[in-house]
Nucleic acid binder design. Structure first.
Length: 587
RNA sequence: GGGGUCGUAGCUCAAUUGGUUAGAGUACCGGACUGUCGAUCCGGUGGUUGCGGGUUCGAGCCCCGUCGACCUCGCCA
C-alpha cells in the first residue's frame, strides 16, 4: 500500500503518529512561507501543511495544482484551537508534511470536483472521470452499492438463488424495440439484448428453481426521459408455488429492509394495496404520488344539469368532468399563470381548463354565469371547498381528464411545496385491467403482457366482456414513479390459448414467437409469479433525485449516446464484411 | 415522429432589446505574502458569440437551416 490512512480518517487520536496519505490536490493556499494543501480522496479531505524549513519539499509543494495526485508522509499534529475547521471531519488536525511525492500531474480540468457551481451536464458527462470525484456523485454510487448489497442479503437470507440469464437472446417483436447484435457465425442472424429476463425466469420456475432473483441488466431501444435509460438494472424476482400475496409480502419485506438500511427508519407493513380503479379515480394515474392531497373529485352529477355547454356535452357523450381543489390558492395564481396552466394541460390532450375562485358561498370565474347559485353551492359542497380555494376542472374522456388532471396535480404539488422531497410514500396498485381496447386497430391489447393470469372470478368474462377482466398484476408505486411491476403468470395452456385468441394471436404466431416458452410450460410448469423492481429508480428515490443519470456511473444522453467514449460509433468496414452487413443510411 | 428551453472566455453568467473595441466573477499564468481553509493583494493571458446561410448601413441579439444538451407528448406489452 502506498498509504497508511485515507483522507477522511485522521482524528485527534492520531496526533503524534507518522502517516502517509495519497490523494488529489483539492485546493492549494500558498503564503510564500507556509503552503496548505487540502488533500482529497473519496473518504474525505485532510489539510496538509508544508513548512519552508524543508526547502526542497516546499518548492515542490508550491508547484502543486488542482487535481495533481500526490503522496505525503508526515506527522499528525493538533491544530491551534482557533484554527480548527469544524466543516471538516478531519478539521482538528493537520498533516505536517515531511516527504512529498508527486505521483502524477493533472491537466487543468474544465471544472473542479468541489466547486460550488455545477457545470452543465454535457460537460460533466464528457469529463465523467472528474465528475465522479464530486462528493455528491460518490454518495450516489455508495448508496447504490448499499442498496444492491442489502437486496442480495435479503434474498439470500430468504432462500433465493441469484441466477444469471443471457445477454445474447432471441428477439421477440413484442413491446419495446430490441437492441440487436449481429451473429458472425450465423450469417444474417441477430441476437437481441434482453428487455428483461422474463422468459428465462419463467423457464427457471419450470426447472424447479422456485426462488430466483437477479440484479439484471436490461436494454430497451426507445426514446429516453429524465427517469429512463437505454440500459438499466432490474431487481428481477420470480417464485413458484405462490400466489399474488406471497410476492407482495416478499417485496414488502425487501422495502422494509432497504428503508431500514438506507434511511435507518422503520417502514410500516404491509404496504397499502390500492386498486387500479381507485387510484385512477382519485389521482388520474396508475402511479400516483401519494405524498400530498389535491385528489380528483367527480363533478358529473352537477355537470350534467348545469348550463355550461362544454360540461354538459362531455357528460352526454360519455366523458367525465372532474376537478381538483387547491386550498387557499385563489390569490396565488394570476390569470396569466392560469393561462399557462391551461396550455400545460393541453399537452395532455385537454381542450381547456376551467377554474373557479371560491368566495363565500359562490364561485368567481369567467364561466360562473353558466352555473346557478344552487349549482355553485353544489360544486362547493362536493369539493368541500372553502373561501380562498381555487378549483380546476377538466371535461373530457376518462383517459384525457385523468392524464391532464394528474399532470396538473403533480405540477401544483411541486409548485406549492405540498410535500417533503425526502419522503418515500410506497404503495401497491393491484387489479390492473387485463386488456385495453385498441380503437385504431379495433382489437384488444394486453395491458401488461399476454402471460398474466386473470383474476379467477373474472375468467368467465374472457368470452363475454374482456374489458371487465382484471389481471393478477401489480405495480409498486413510489412518489409518482412506477418502481416495480409484476404478475402471476399463466401456467395453464388452455387459459393461455384463450388469451392469445382474444389478442388476435394465432396458434402459429404464438408458436413462432414464444414457442420455446409455451413448450417449456407443457413440461410440468408450477404455478408461479414474479416482479421486477427498477433498481436505478429506487436509487433515485432514496436520493430524492429526479434525474436517473445521477445514479449511474456512466449514463447515456437523451439520444442514447455516451459523451465520454463517443459510443455509438461507426465501425471498421472489415467488421461489417465479417458480419455481411451493408449500411444504408438515408441522405 | 411532434412541442418546448438552451448554446457567448476553460467554467458560471452579463451585454441597456439591432449600434463604437463583447464585459464580470472564477479558473489559468506571473509576482508579493509563515495559519489559511471560498485565503488576500498586484499584474497578465484568454472570444470565428455551436456551425452554415439570409435580412440589414450595421447581427451575440431578427429569420431559415443544421449540430448538440436538456424537458416533454407519442413510444416504453
Amino acid at each position: 500500500m502506498l498509504r497508511t490512512h485515507t483522507c477522511g480518517e485522521l482524528r485527534t487520536s492520531h496526533i503524534g503518529q507518522s502517516v502517509t496519505l495519497c490523494g488529489w490536490v483539492d485546493t492549494y493556499r500558498d503564503f510564500g512561507g507556509l503552503v496548505f494543501i487540502d488533500l482529497r480522496d473519496r473518504y474525505g479531505m485532510t489539510q496538509v501543511v508544508f513548512n519552508p524549513s524543508l526547502a526542497e519539499m516546499h518548492a515542490v509543494a508550491r508547484s502543486l495544482r488542482n487535481e495533481d495526485v500526490i503522496r505525503v508522509t508526515g506527522e499528525v499534529v493538533a491544530r491551534p484551537a482557533d484554527m480548527q475547521n469544524l466543516k471538516l471531519s478531519t478539521g482538528e488536525i493537520d498533516l505536517k508534511g515531511r516527504q512529498l511525492e508527486v505521483l502524477n500531474k493533472s491537466k487543468t480540468p474544465p471544472f473542479f470536483p468541489t466547486q460550488a457551481e455545477l457545470p452543465n451536464e454535457e460537460l460533466r458527462l464528457k469529463y465523467r472521470f472528474v465528475d465522479l470525484r464530486r462528493p455528491a456523485v460518490q454518495q450516489a454510487m455508495i448508496l447504490r452499492h448499499n442498496l444492491s448489497k442489502a437486496t442480495r442479503d435479503y434474498f439470500d437470507e430468504n432462500g433465493f438463488l441469484e441466477i444469471e440469464t443471457p445477454m445474447l437472446g432471441r428477439s421477440t417483436p413484442e413491446g419495446a424495440r430490441d437492441y440487436l447484435v449481429p451473429s458472425r457465425v450465423h450469417e444474417g442472424c441477430f441476437y437481441a439484448l434482453p428487455q428483461s429476463p422474463q422468459i428465462y425466469k419463467q423457464i427457471l420456475m419450470v426447472a424447479g428453481y422456485d426462488r430466483y432473483f437477479q440484479l439484471a441488466k436490461c436494454f430497451r431501444d426507445e426514446d429516453l426521459r429524465a427517469d429512463r435509460q437505454p440500459e438499466f438494472t432490474q431487481i428481477d424476482v420470480e417464485m413458484a408455488f405462490v400466489q399474488q400475496d406471497d410476492i407482495l409480502g416478499t417485496i414488502d419485506g425487501l422495502m422494509a429492509r432497504l428503508v431500514k438500511k438506507l434511511r435507518g427508519t422503520e417502514l410500516k407493513l404491509p404496504l397499502p394495496r390500492l386498486t387500479h380503479r381507485e387510484v385512477m379515480e382519485r389521482f388520474g394515474s396508475d402511479k400516483p404520488d401519494l405524498r400530498f392531497g389535491l385528489e380528483l373529485t367527480d363533478l358529473g352529477e352537477i355537470a350534467s344539469v348545469c348550463d355550461f355547454g362544454v360540461f354538459k356535452s362531455t357528460i352526454e357523450s360519455g366523458g367525465r368532468v372532474r376537478g381538483i381543489r387547491v386550498p387557499g390558492a385563489a390569490e396565488k395564481y394570476s390569470r396569466k399563470q392560469i393561462d399557462d396552466l391551461t396550455e400545460f394541460v393541453k399537452q395532455y390532450g385537454a381542450r381547456g381548463l376551467a377554474f373557479f375562485r371560491v368566495k363565500d358561498g359562490e364561485l368567481d370565474s369567467p364561466i360562473a354565469k353558466f352555473f346557478s347559485p344552487d349549482h355553485q353551492k353544489a360544486i362547493i359542497a362536493k369539493l368541500d371547498a372553502r373561501p380562498g380555494d381555487l378549483i380546476f376542472c377538466v371535461a373530457d374522456s376518462f383517459k384525457v381528464s385523468s392524464a391532464a388532471l394528474n399532470a396538473l396535480r403533480l405540477r401544483l404539488g411541486k409548485e406549492l411545496n405540498l410535500f417533503d422531497p425526502q419522503e418515500l410514500k410506497i404503495a401497491w396498485v393491484v387489479d390492473f385491467p387485463m386488456f385495453q381496447w385498441n380503437d385504431e386497430e379495433k382489437r384488444w391489447d394486453a395491458e401488461h403482457h399476454p402471460f398474466c393470469q386473470p383474476v379467477e372470478e373474472d375468467i368467465p368474462f374472457l368470452d363475454s366482456d374482456p374489458g371487465k377482466v382484471r389481471a393478477q398484476s401489480y405495480d409498486l408505486v413510489c412518489n409518482g414513479y412506477e418502481a416495480a411491476s409484476g404478475s402471476v403468470r399463466i401456467h395453464d395452456s388452455t387459459v393461455q390459448q384463450k388469451i392469445f385468441n382474444l389478442l388476435g394471436i394465432t396458434n402459429d404466431e404464438a408458436e413462432a414467437r414464444f414457442g420455446f416458452l409455451l413448450e417449456a410450460l407443457r413440461y410440468g410448469a408450477p404455478p408461479h409469479a414474479g416482479v421486477a423492481l427498477g433498481l436505478d429508480r429506487w436509487v433515485m428515490l432514496f436520493l430524492a433525485s429526479d434525474n436517473i443519470r445521477d445514479v449511474i456511473a456512466f449514463p447515456k444522453t437523451q439520444k442514447a449516446g455516451d459523451m465520454l467514449t463517443g459510443a455509438p460509433a461507426e465501425v471498421d468496414p472489415k467488421q461489417l464484411r465479417d458480419l455481411h452487413i451493408k449500411v444504408d443510411v438515408p441522405r
